[in-house]
Amino acid sequence: MKQGLPLIVTRADPGGAATVERAKALGLDARHLPLFAARPLDWAVPADGFDALLLTSAQAVRLAGPGLANLAGLPVYTVGPATAAAAEAAGLAVVMTGPGDGQSLLDAMASQDIDHILWLCGRDRSAFDARNAQLTSLPVYAVDPVDPPPGWSEAIAEPAVLLAHSARGAARIAELVGSARAHLSLVAISAAAAAGAGEGWGQIAIAAQSDDAAMLAAAHNLCQKGE
């Protein structure tokens, strides 16, 4: 049975479908209207030796392809449990999982005197301070904007709650929604994502942690309040 306001999930698959599944398990009226699509990039392992592998997104594992097997000997540091689970399923040895903040994980790695880190990442990525380590960024996937799917215009015309899983995603949502947004609420994964969404929303909530569970907890609250 429908409960509260609709929840619009805009992130690319497979993460988007997983978010919708979790939201429906919480009793939310979740609708998957992705505004991005992920695709693999061609890449090769650099010749330099590395001390550790950094993974900040499960997409890097899912889209890296067969070349990932060449890195199976490295200790792996991951951001978030979903990335850790994807890495372990791919046969990688996860030695540490951070709570959802790439910079905090790099700080922890710096305290272990790790000198040379290989980061499998997306083409569009955040900037991190590797402290005294050498961080080599290697894009293995891209997440590109796509046209809004059927049902988008109707979904945002009525009160609803939207999820923004990144600052880039928040900016795209804001662009497509336009200035008529006072009837819509937004849950942002971080303060940076909230800033990317701009002003004029009915409500903006920032997740207590940078993960799906915290975002859905905030969304559940907004969906019920706005009913």
Rank of each mutant, 00 (worst) to 15 (best):
A47T: 15
F50T: 11
F50K: 05
F50C: 08
L54I: 00
L55C: 07
L55Y: 11
L55Q: 09
T56E: 08
V61M: 03
R62F: 11
A64E: 02
G65T: 13
P66Q: 05
L68I: 12
A69L: 10
P75L: 11
P75A: 09
V76T: 15
T78L: 07
G80F: 04
A84T: 12
E88P: 04
E88C: 11
A89N: 14
A89T: 09
G91H: 09
A93F: 05
A93I: 09
V94Q: 01
M96G: 00
G98C: 10
G100R: 07
D101N: 15
Q103H: 12
A110K: 03
S111Y: 01
Q112P: 01
D113S: 15
W119T: 00
W119N: 02
G122S: 07
D124P: 00
S126H: 10
A127N: 09
A127P: 00
D129G: 05
R131T: 05
A133L: 03
A133T: 09
Q134Y: 01
L135N: 03
L135S: 01
T136W: 06
L138N: 01
P139M: 06
P139G: 08
V140H: 04
V140K: 05
G151R: 07
S153K: 11
E154P: 00
A155M: 02
A157R: 07
E158L: 12
L162Q: 01
H165V: 12
S166R: 02
A167Y: 00
A167Q: 13
R168K: 06
